[in-house]
Computed example of a mutant assay.
Amino acid sequence: MSAPPADAAPWAAADPYTAALRTGTGPLFLRRTDGWLLPLDVERWCARADAVDRDVLDRCEGPVLDVGCGPGRLVAELAARGRTVLGIDVSATAVERTTRLGGPALHRSVFDPLPGEGRWRTVLLMDGNVGIGGDPHALLRRTARLLAPDGLLIAETAPVDVDERAEVEVTDTPVRASGRPFPWARLGTPALLRHAKEAGLRSTAQWEAGGRSFVALRVRTAHTSADAANSAAVISSQRPRNTSAERPVVSA
């Protein structure tokens, strides 16, 4: 199995992130090296699944793998419904919180060996997790290998048209970074669709709800299109175009 494009450990080791998960409160930001800040919605992540989340979960099929499950609201909701589900996260604190909520979770990167590879019916990339590793193409190819044939990927995208890769740090104040930089990406729906096509995934639905944007994709199979040969290669096998699509909260 190929290694991730970059080590995910800095995110997991970022003290403000751990503290925020333990308290369930922010503020928390991803801070780009030029001072641009992206607020992280810790309070929502640590709350119960809301109506928008539940609509996403209603669309899930079969066993579900939640990549970057965070504090576990989605895993816990699916487990409460009696669904087969597993969360994975590089943060031990996130995994501990997920299991306390009654959801099964493992302390793993998506690029680590995982249970059920090639048999998951649904994979979730929520809450900005399309940015894992800073290489969307590598992440989507890896996701395609985790999914069963014609499996479903549901990804949450940025609500703006952006295709950005950057070095970021986790911070809990507008002016102070608290860890070493690590690669991250932000993708709007158009960018995700471009990367997905290259990774052997086809779009089946797009929708917006509660100010959030989502895309549903499926692994291409020999029965879906003339791109079957490309799909088979993917299955066998974490520059910005618009870096200012949103105004920064603070420029330090």
Rank of each mutant, 00 (worst) to 15 (best):
P27M: 05
T93D: 12
H223T: 14
K197Q: 09
P27L: 02
R119L: 14
P240G: 10
L74S: 03
A222S: 08
R142I: 02
P63G: 14
R119K: 12
D58N: 08
G82A: 12
R22A: 08
R31M: 08
R32S: 04
R202S: 07
A8E: 15
R180P: 15
I132G: 01
R100D: 13
L86Q: 03
G179E: 02
T84N: 07
L193D: 01
L152E: 05
G133N: 03
D7E: 12
A94E: 14
C60L: 11
G102V: 09
Q238V: 13
V64I: 13
N242P: 02
V85S: 03
F29K: 10
A185G: 04
Q206H: 14
T189W: 03
L74M: 10
D50G: 11
P16I: 12
P16V: 13
R108N: 00
P149K: 03
W184V: 06
A232P: 07
E156I: 11
E61L: 13
E77V: 05
A9Q: 09
P183K: 11
H137G: 07
A51S: 15
E164A: 08
S225N: 11
S251R: 12
V123W: 09
M126D: 01
V123K: 04
V130H: 03
C69V: 00
L40G: 02
A49W: 11
T157I: 00
E198H: 13
F214D: 01
G131D: 07
Q206R: 15
R239I: 10
S203D: 12
G82E: 08
A252Y: 00
E156D: 04
E96T: 12
A222V: 13
A148H: 05
D55P: 11
G68P: 01
E246Q: 07
H223Y: 09
L65T: 06
V175D: 11
L40E: 10
F182W: 13
W11H: 08
T173E: 04
V175Y: 09
A209Q: 15
T143K: 03
D41P: 05
A226N: 14
A92L: 15
R241W: 07
V215K: 02
T84M: 10
S2K: 07
A79L: 06
R22M: 03
D161G: 09
V162H: 03
T33N: 08
A12V: 03
S237H: 10
A3K: 13
G72W: 06
T122P: 09
L153D: 04
R241M: 00
D127E: 11
S231N: 06
A13K: 09
G131V: 09
R218W: 02
T33H: 14
E208P: 00
A138Q: 04
A49T: 13
G102N: 06
N242L: 05
E167R: 14
A228K: 06
R32N: 02
T243Q: 14
A233H: 10
A3L: 14
R141A: 07
P159A: 12
D15P: 12
L153Q: 01
G70R: 12
P4A: 06
G116C: 03
R22T: 08
D53R: 13
L37T: 13
A144M: 05
T18V: 15
I88T: 06
R176Y: 00
S236H: 14
E43C: 05
D150M: 04
V175E: 10
L146Q: 07
K197N: 07
A155F: 09
S109C: 15
G62D: 00
L139E: 04
H107T: 07
D15Y: 01
P27N: 04
A196Q: 10
